[in-house]
């Protein structure tokens, strides 16, 4: 089985959020980037586990500039066999999905994280599935393969659903699917020699753009309540905050 895992890079979770160019672009200066946790912890690790159990290959794909190669090498160190980097700025979800779909032929299973932790779009997986005209199971918390049949558990409001679907298919991975893996020394050494193929972008569409970023208003400040007077807290929640 051939698995393609889509990985994106996001600012490290404690990174400072600031903007430039008249608040139209994220200021990346001094920001450290990581692999999007949902892509890394769940999609990639589960893909590697499926390969270990059933054979096959795991390829990772990223749409982005050469500075993303560090993140791609980490994915190779965790256990992917090879990588594709589409050499273009990931300007919108649609554009990214079009690039991934253009590289996805011949893969049985395409995996993404359930969303990125920066723009939280949750769009790319569904778009890739539609472009490839294959089934899509989102927010999967478990996947097992038997031949070309996948048994997938997905989160739904207030519960979960288990379904069967044959490849090719696209899934997005959520918490529960796998446990984070820290790459070991051997993995890191081997990653240096694994193929990272840089390809040019196929055409694509950008139908949305950020017109302006803004920072949310600061909180007014905390009101401390006497621990022995919970009646006062309840009163404030009812009368001042009006939330009870």
């Amino acid at each position: 089985m051939k698995i393609l895992v889509c990985i994106s890079k996001t600012p490290e979770t404690t990174a400072k959020i600031a903007f430039k160019d008249g608040n139209t672009a994220y200021d990346e200066s001094g920001v450290q980037f990581i692999m999007n946790p949902y892509d890394e912890w769940y999609a990639l690790v589960r893909a590697v586990e499926l390969k270990e159990a059933n054979g096959g290959t795991v390829t990772v794909i990223n749409v982005g500039p050469a500075t993303n190669d560090v993140v791609i090498r980490k994915a190779l160190a965790i256990g992917a066999d090879d990588a594709i980097r589409v050499d273009a700025e990931p300007t919108s979800a649609m554009f990214v999905a079009q690039q991934i779909a253009a590289q996805a032929s011949g893969f049985d299973l395409v995996m993404t994280g359930k969303e990125t932790i920066d723009y939280n779009g949750s769009e790319v997986g569904a778009m890739v599935a539609e472009l490839l005209e294959v089934p899509y199971v989102s927010y999967a918390t478990a996947i097992d393969m038997s031949g070309n049949t996948a048994t997938v558990t997905r989160e739904i409001e207030g519960g979960n659903e288990v379904s069967e679907v044959t490849t090719p298919l696209v899934i997005s991975a959520a918490k529960g699917m796998a446990e984070q893996r820290i790459p070991n020394m051997r993995g890191i050494m081997m990653a240096k020699r694994k193929p990272l193929n840089v390809v040019a972008a196929a055409g694509g569409d950008n139908l949305v753009k950020v017109a302006a970023f803004a920072l949310p208003a600061d909180k007014a400040g905390v009101k401390m309540i006497d621990p022995d007077n919970m009646d006062e807290l309840v009163r404030l929640l009812q009368e001042e905050a009006k939330v009870l």
């Binding site: 600012p11 920066d118 939280n120 949305v208 017109a211």
Partner: peptide, 16 residues
């Protein structure tokens, strides 16, 4: 929409 996990707000323009 909120972006960067609620640390900023983005005003998106849709051209289609």
């Amino acid at each position: 929409k909120n972006v960067f996990a609620g640390k900023a707000v983005a005003d998106y323009q849709i051209d289609s």
